Amino acid sequence: MKCNTTRWAIALSRLILGSTLLGLMGSCSEPVDSSVSPTGETVEAAQTEAPQSWSDGFEDSDWQEKWEVRSSRSWGWENLEVIDDPSGRFDRVLRVVYPKNSVTPSVARKEGVPVGGGQFLADLGMPPADAMRLSYYLRFSENFDFVKGGKLPGLFGGDEISGGNIPDGTNGFSTRLMWRRDGDGEVYAYLPTSDKYGTSIDRGAWRFVPGRWYHIEQEVVLNEPGQENGRIRLWVDGAQVINRDDVMFRTTDELKIEGIFFSTFFGGGDLSWATPEDVYVDFAEFSVSRP
């Protein structure tokens, strides 16, 4: 009987010692950031950080979801197709076609001709910011006739960004590119200082040639409200071709850069801008970062 009592005492002391050690170990562990849910349960607090960069090479069939394409103000999806890159430089490209005699939707409806190109706004899953850097590649088809000009993607913020709707400093801006006659390039910006339509910035600073790839990089830094100290910088194949630091984008710091204004078409507001034959532009490897 005395032997059994001794065994029970030893076992009990070991149990007490083990519990004490576990308690000490638990008190030395890292603290857990937690909060109490509406139901009274303790839950770990989510630790998330807003993304500082974004990129896409059209690898996924549902690429529009990654771009966070808005449902409004988009058109021309029938002219956009992701294909294997026939040049072999990239895995996949977004090919945008411009049928013969095609122009913008407004002119097409009026004149009974095809709509060429396409357009959409993309938020990219990034928070609005005061500065962004956009990068992408493009190639005009070998038979591309630049005619009088057309639009190419850029950045945007707010709602008044195109179509002759001049922003007032609080409600929008955009920094698309344009090709002009003979392939001359420019930034085509909608600003509160614009007159009737967009502002042509440094036209002819570079020149596109059909059939070859170009790397476009555009950096936009918004001005301090009320001051003309906003910046637009542009590089083509690594060479800086535009450097403007006197731009007025806004009169309030509530207006931010929101994402990509993917916009490309011939025009122009009449048939004199229309493409004389079927042509296309291939786009590849889009990315956005915060400088």
Rank of each mutant, 00 (worst) to 15 (best):
V103C: 12
D195E: 14
S272Y: 07
F173D: 02
W75A: 08
M178G: 05
L177I: 12
Q52L: 15
L191Q: 01
M126N: 06
P31A: 15
E68N: 11
E41I: 11
S289I: 15
G88H: 04
T6L: 08
V220N: 02
F90E: 08
N229L: 09
W8C: 15
P86T: 11
F265L: 15
G158E: 05
T104C: 01
I83H: 05
R176C: 05
E254S: 13
R109A: 14
L222E: 00
E186F: 01
V36W: 07
I16N: 10
S19M: 15
D145N: 10
L121W: 06
I10R: 11
W273M: 02
R109N: 14
D85H: 03
S106T: 13
G268S: 07
E111N: 09
D145R: 04
V96L: 11
T170D: 10
E224V: 13
G117A: 01
E68L: 09
P210W: 00
P31F: 14
S35D: 12
G26L: 13
M178L: 12
S37K: 01
F208M: 03
E41R: 08
V97P: 05
F286T: 05
D245Q: 15
M1V: 12
W63L: 01
G238Q: 06
L15N: 12
L22Y: 13
G150K: 00
P192A: 10
Y98W: 07
G157V: 05
M178V: 03
F208Q: 02
D282P: 12
T193P: 00
L21R: 05
G172E: 02
E41M: 11
L152I: 12
R250I: 10
W273N: 02
R180H: 08
T48A: 12
V103W: 01
V97R: 15
I83K: 10
P276E: 03
R290T: 05
S174T: 00
M1Y: 12
S174N: 00
S141R: 02
S35K: 13
W179N: 00
G238R: 03
I10D: 06
L271H: 02
N79C: 07
